[in-house]
Structures are given as structure tokens and as C-alpha cells.
Write a protein that binds this DNA or RNA. Structure first.
Lengths: 340, 340
DNA sequence: GTGTCATTCTAACACGTATGAAAAACGCTT
DNA sequence: AAGCGTTTTTCATACGTGTTAGAATGACAC
């Protein structure tokens, strides 16, 4: 099943010119006579000629495509971020290649190798919740390959990073719960190896530091798969419910964690917020339709995608090696609703 | 900012061989001595050699990547479908390039040209709600370019198609409403030019045909952007509410339409299902957390993505022109909850 | 020593494009 | 018409890979 497009050679033969003349004419070089240029251009448009991007890639050593690695496309935050990524990339003539890790470290390594071997010009990545070892990223980075981290960043690697003020987002959410009079506030976060988990927990801790109640260790739960698996959320919630005094509020520190926590509480017949209040990070656009409407910390996902892509393209197109790296920190937005 | 990988030439020079010998050795050709093979292979793995996919693409006239065009990534149905697409594509060593139309015909044409000019091997598309003219797709298709339609298909173009039984899905949903005792059932569908809209309306009509109530034309609303824009949904709902007798149930025929309809009803202070029942197509995984939990027609999005991709790859890899096209029709799943 | 065959490797080319250098064409001056 | 400068076109090569055809080598038999 072939599908052959017109090449520069076809034009050359048809017009009795050499390929290089045609090439130059198409590129509007000054060293081609206006008459020939017009002849070539006319014929080219007539047969609907388009330069073969693959040949161009080979020649120019760039593919004009970037890779994106995220945990799950079917996650509001990531799909919105990809939306932002795609908008900027397309605008600048770049293609977007997407891969998912499903929060698995092994898949991240495989997918990274796959993308890297597909000659992408750069990479946008929000690391998987299972990522502890960074060798795969470091190896690429050390060879000078352009990488930009967004959301789930990696501190050890020096490059552009785009994230939200996780500390502040968590602080605000927790403070909101405190102000509402909740006394025993638990938290369920992603895995401890992710910096966003640690930062969000730190924000939670800081907010509680102002109160008399010290956050006992039992109130802090980590979730290996960042809430992707319902079962681990269920386990965390069950453990929290056994505590005495029982927590009267839960702060969930990621998108899937929030909705799955809600799911678990509902399944257990626990009313929100009467029995337990719930506040969490989430970018779902259905939060106000939920029962109850959820108080959430919302991240500017679309913007994050846009900014990360701008930075990546800047990195890719820079002539000299970049040594100064940006660390963009966006603000979260606390949307207060009935769940707290 | 360059990033040069090892080439076959590097190996050849290092070992004092010719490039073709190295090539043959790597491809394990029988006409290379075992000793040389081993030497080459060993050195190749040592310097972590990977064949340049771009050079390969140029040579083989295939890029091993497929394009996907959907309305919105940040839509449960599409993100789940893309999930399925990505899983199969990656499995077979293909890359996935994603573009969005945001329900705009112009964007669809542009994005199609863009992808086509990027030498993808094939295309998966769910056409935009604004697509009435098919010239852009026909032109590509007539040149023998592999295309597979999924979800929002196009009858006029002969190729593989993957969809759900839209008629049946709508029929089931409407029948469910009838059985629940609702008398005045309205419908809001996507634009009339989409076959899925027409089929779903037909299913709705057929279900009502068994009842005494004939569906007046006023009960049927079309939505130009398939519910993407809240404002158009609001308008449709407002018009429905003015009818006498006022509809006591609404069937929404697409994902965004369903959630946005719910949003509008809530904003107007209309209770579901006490004032008006609501049933709609939706693939959101939050439906049981909504207030009220929504009765929905769910599509096997992940599966659709998988099947469509399998068919596309089959088309791409077929030696002889394919003349027999499949038309896969999957079943929808009616999930009954409190909204009806 | 010559002919036949099998084995192992190399040279040349192709894919489509771009570019530096060389060559050809042209116009002008003397 | 020879010389020169300028404009226009062509040649050769490169990017990285794979393939085809053919050359070189060696082994064996006569």
C-alpha cells in the first residue's frame, strides 16, 4: 500500500533542471533567475509538491517533534496539560508524541528509551509515581538532550522546571479546613519519593503547626500509585477511620487520590462533609456537579503545559548550551465548595 | 544543541570494515562470517548503537507513526480511546501523533494537512462536529492513504470503521425513560451532519414510536458544537423548558452534552430527577459520584481505540490494496442510576 | 597450474533534501 | 575576440541506512 508524493527530483526531470536548482528555487535563493524560480514554483504548486519532512529531518538532524511522558492521559490534569502542550507545539510547527507510564517505573524507562530512539528533539516529562532511580533520565540529560520537567519534577537534574506552588496549595487547603473548625485533619498523598508529595505534606504540616493539634504520624498516608488504584486508597481510608479520635477531615494530595477517596467514602456510607470533610487537589471539570460539590485545589494545567513547551522549544532551538535554567512556579487556586 | 548518536559508519571506521558489512552483520545476514558478526555486535552494544529511525524511514518510505485526530483530548471518551490506541500502537512499535480539532472544521482541515505532510503512515479520525465537507479526507483516501474512522464515522468514505451501536444505545436509554414512566422525553444531540447524531436520534424516535406520545419536533434539539460550548446547551435547555407540556426527561446524546446539560439544569435550580430526569451518553468515570448519580450510556472507548488501531495497522501493513472493509459495531452499556 | 565453486567482503547506489564549489552562460569593456 | 565580472545552473557530496551486484579470497578437484 504505497502512497508516493512528488519529490524535488520529479520536478527537476519534468522541467529539465537539476535537483539543486529546483531546491534553490523553492527556497527562493537569490542565485536563481526569476524566470526559473517562477517556472519551478508554478509547477510545484500545480503538482502539489511538499518537501518530504523525513528527508529534511535526516538532513537537518532534527525531527521537529517532541515527546511527552505522563502517567495517564485519561486524567483531567494531564489531559489539560497535554492540551496546552499541543497548542504551543503545533503553533511552532512541532509534533507531539505521547506515551503513558501508568505510574510504572519500568514503563517509564521503556517508554523513554522508545521515544529517545525515535529521534525526538526534546522531552516533556512528569515522572511516574514509581520513579526512584533517575539513571535513565540522567543519561539522556548528560548527553545534552533537552528535557523539561513539569508538575512532578526531579530536583536532581538541572533543567527547566514548571510546577505549581505545591506547598502553598496544600497549606491553603489545610488552613481552610482548620478555619472551618476541623480538628483532626488527615492527609493522603502520593508516594514519598515524589517531590510534589513531600511539598504538599510539608504545606499541610506547616498549616497545622499554627494549631494546638500536632499532626500525628498516623494521620499521614502515602499512596504508592498516587491513587491510581482504588484498592490502595481504600486501605489508607480504612486505616484512617480506625484511628481514635477519628479524623474529621481528609486532605487528598492528587487528582486520582481525591476522586477515589470520595468513591471509597461513599461506598462506606460516610457522609461528606457531615461525617468527614474532603478537600483535595483535582482538575476535574465536574467537581461542582459532584455530591457534594468538592472543595478542590486546582492547578493551571493548560498553562503549565504551554509554559513547559515554550521552555522546551527554547532549549531545543538554542544555539549555545543553556546553563541558566528557569523554575516556573504557578499558583494553585482553592475553590471552596460544600465538601468542607 | 546537538545530540549525536553512534552510526553504522562509526562502527565501520572503528573496526576497519565497510558500512555495509556492519549493516549486514547487525541484521544477522548469513553472508557474514560468525567472527565478524560477533565483533560488530559486541562493539555495537558497547557503544549503545541504535539504528537511526529517520534514515530508516527515508529508506523504507514509512515512518512507523500514525496520526490521531479527535475533537478534544480532555474529554473522557476520547482520552480513553487514545489510551486504547496508544496501547496497541506502542505494542506494535508505532508512534502516536495527536491533534485536536476543538470541533472546528477549519482546524480539522489544517490539522489533517499538517499530519499528512508529516509523513504519518495512517490516520485514525473521529471527525469534528463541524465537518460537512469531506474533500480533505476524500483526497487523502483516494490516493490510497490508510484511514480508519472511529466513533464519529463518515459513511461516504469506504474504509474500516469502528463505532458503537448508536441506534441501540439511544433506544435503550429512551426505553428506560419510558419504562420509568416519563411522558415527555426531549433529546439534545450533536449536530445533524454527524451520523452518530442522526443514529442516536433515530434510536430515540424508534423507542418513542411504541408509545402513544409522538415526539414533537420541538423536543428534538441539535447542538452545533456537540455540547462543547456551555452556552449552546443552555439555549437548548431554555427552549425545552418553555415547552408546554414541559419535558419531564432529557436524553443527551454525547459526553460533553450530558455533563453540560446537568450543569445548566443545576444552575437553573432544576432538580434531577424530581423535576426533570436526565440520561445521556457519557464516559466520565465520575458519574456515580455526581449529584444525582447519572444514568448513562457508556461506550467501550478503550476497546474502540484498540480495535481501530489494529485495523489501521492491518491496513498499513497490507501488501495488496484492501478492498473489503470492516465495520465493527460494539455494544453500549446502559448504567442505570438515580438520575432517571 | 587451471577451473569450479563457495564464502566473505566491498563498492556503488538508493531514499529526498540542501549546500559549497565548480562550471557554464551571459553581458560588458577594451 | 579576448578578457573580465556577474549571474545562473550543475556537480558532488552529505545526512544514515540497506541492498544488489560483483570482486576478492580461498578451498578443492582434476
Amino acid at each position: 500500500m504505497k502512497f508516493e508524493a512528488a519529490t524535488i527530483k520529479d520536478i527537476a526531470i519534468a522541467l529539465g533542471l537539476s535537483t539543486s536548482t529546483v531546491s534553490r528555487a523553492l527556497r527562493d535563493s537569490h542565485e536563481i533567475s526569476i524566470a526559473t524560480k517562477q517556472l519551478v514554483l508554478e509547477y510545484a504548486t500545480r503538482i502539489n509538491y511538499h518537501p518530504n519532512p523525513i528527508a529534511l529531518s535526516l538532513k537537518e538532524k532534527r525531527s521537529r517533534s517532541i515527546g511527552v511522558i505522563v502517567a495517564e492521559i485519561a486524567n483531567s490534569f494531564f489531559s489539560q496539560a497535554i492540551n496546552g502542550i499541543e497548542s504551543v507545539a503545533k503553533d511552532k510547527g512541532y509534533n507531539v508524541m505521547i506515551s503513558q507510564t501508568h505510574e510504572s517505573f519500568d514503563k517509564e524507562v521503556m517508554t523513554l528509551q522508545y521515544l529517545a530512539s525515535r529521534s525526538i528533539d526534546g522531552l516533556l516529562i512528569s515522572v511516574s509515581s514509581g520513579t526512584e532511580n533517575l539513571d535513565h533520565l540522567k543519561a539522556l540529560h548528560e548527553r545534552g538532550f533537552p528535557i523539561v520537567f513539569f508538575d512532578r519534577i526531579v530536583e536532581e537534574i538541572q533543567t527547566h522546571k514548571v510546577m505549581v506552588d505545591n506547598f502553598r496549595g496544600a497549606y491553603d487547603a489545610t488552613l481552610h479546613l482548620i478555619n472551618k473548625g476541623y480538628k483532626h485533619i488527615a492527609v493522603i498523598a502520593g508516594p514519598e519519593n515524589l517531590s510534589i508529595s513531600r511539598e504538599r505534606i510539608a504545606g499541610y504540616r506547616e498549616a497545622l503547626a499554627h494549631t494546638r493539634v500536632k499532626p500525628g504520624k498516623a494521620l499521614i498516608k502515602y499512596s504508592r500509585y498516587a491513587g491510581l488504584q482504588l484498592q490502595e486508597v481504600e486501605q489508607a481510608v480504612s486505616q484512617l477511620l480506625k484511628l481514635r479520635p477519628r479524623p474529621d477531615a481528609i486532605f487528598t494530595a492528587s487528582d486520582k487520590l481525591t476522586t477515589n477517596c470520595m468513591r471509597v467514602l461513599k461506598a462506606k456510607g460516610i457522609r461528606i462533609p457531615q461525617d468527614i470533610a474532603l478537600v483535595g487537589f483535582s482538575n476535574s471539570d465536574l467537581i461542582e456537579l459532584l455530591h457534594p460539590p468538592l472543595t478542590v485545589v486546582r492547578q493551571p494545567a493548560f498553562e503549565m503545559g504551554q509554559i513547559a513547551t515554550q521552555l522546551l522549544l527554547q532549549l531545543i532551538e538554542s544555539k549555545k548550551p543553556v546553563k541558566e535554567f528557569e523554575r516556573k512556579i504557578l499558583n494553585t487556586n482553592l475553590i471552596v465548595q460544600a465538601s468542607s
